[in-house]
Amino acid sequence: MERAEAHRSVLTARKAGLVGCRHCAEAAPLGTTHCRRCGARLSSRDQGSLQRVWAWWCAGVICYIPANTQPMLVTKTLLHEDSSTIVGGAVALFAQGSPGIALIILIASVGIPVGKFLSIAYLALAIRRGPVRAPGNLQSTYHVVEYIGRWSMIDVFVVAILATLVQFDTVAQITPGPASLAFALSVIFTMLAAQSFDARLIWDRIDNADEVP
């Protein structure tokens, strides 16, 4: 009963005429510009937040295109040179008989990034308009997106490790392709997009949705 009621009856800092610090959780009277405990800039709701989310989101999506069309790894052996994209590499791994790793690579480099693009867009649109049908979902989506972002860097690190180790002069050589940079940038921009969210906006929507019935 406590938990069910909690959603409805919470007093927010803004309603109480206060502004909370997002870094150290200190409260200050509304209108204070800087937190007196940690010195961070205070704002009750970050109105420019969505604009920044979309800006970083676009940058992330744009970088994700070359990350998939350009080669990620260039393998040079005595006789031929072979360059593979992210998906191409995973397919090759699958064909060579290691479906497990192929799956990890596909999830980390295709599943997670695309999922993040979609969920950030969903969150940003949901904050802007429409009644929230399942408020809990918004919040958990946000937490997952924020937590999972950094793990996409795995693929970049794998490429780096492989490229360093497989350096046998002319016999076999692996070098990172341009897609590695594009992919790393895409991950960073998406992380910045997720961090730009002012999570309190999500809760304002939830509060409003609760007040309607």
Binding site: S9, V10, L11, T12, A13, R14, K15, A16, G17, L18, V19, G20, C21, R22, H23, A25, E26, A27, A28, P29, R36, R37, S44, Q139, A199, R200, I202, W203, D204
Partner: peptide, 25 residues
């Protein structure tokens, strides 16, 4: 509700504000 604060109380440092959802404690 007894634990959450009344707006008339003097502000900081008597409150903790949830950095994610702005709830006041």
């Amino acid at each position: 509700m007894s634990d959450t604060a009344k707006p008339t109380d003097p502000p900081a440092p008597h409150f903790v504000v949830c950095p994610q959802c702005d709830a006041l404690y």
